[in-house]
Amino acid sequence: MSGLFDDLLQPLGDKQRDALVSAWAALEYGSEPASEAALPALRDAALRHLLDQMLQRTGRTLVRAGAYLWTSGYRDDIAAVLAANGWGILPPLERAALILVLIHSVAIPRAEGRLAGDDWQSTHPTTPTHLRKLSQVRGQRRLSDALQWLRAAGLVRLVRGADSEMAGASYVPGPALRRLTPAARKRLQENLILAVGPDTALATAITVRRRLGRPEVTTSQRSGS
């Protein structure tokens, strides 16, 4: 074998190896976060550490997705390199559609106090009306392709019957957003604020802090341990 994980897995017995590999599969393949209750490798501190090492080798990291829930996401440093090279960045229309969903399903409900919790999940659908702007820009066919891609990638989730008036489906943010690390989630929030209110003091504070580069470093270190 010339696998990437051999030296990590080699010293283990069948049972532990099995636990580790199945947890790896659950984290990497599952659409929703995995529960500690079902996976011994997430419960045991030593195994979870090994699991994180496995993920680290593939440019991934453990992401906590709630109490006793875990998923995996890109390591922040790796994500930065990927983004810098333009690897894995969605095409503009896909991104625009996703951002509209995030604004309508998360940002506005939150600003109106209708949405609690600190993640990018939401129960407020973004209706076809909200997305109509994009369909006018580029044509219906292209938009539906983009949405199909987003659905397949788990970035948006279809909700039926939210807007019966308009043709087309309604969406909420998909489970793939739960894979974002705290730093990535925060970056998303800040990018949104910078785009929406570039002249606000919030934007200034974000810019200043990014220039100093300090807080990001400390948060990511903390979450990674």
Binding site: L4, Q56, R57, T58, G59, R60, Y74, R75, I78, A79, V81, L82, W87, G88
Partner: peptide, 10 residues
């Protein structure tokens, strides 16, 4: 390797 893997994932 980590970068290749991540890129393949993305």
């Amino acid at each position: 390797a980590a970068l290749w893997w991540a890129r393949s994932r993305a």
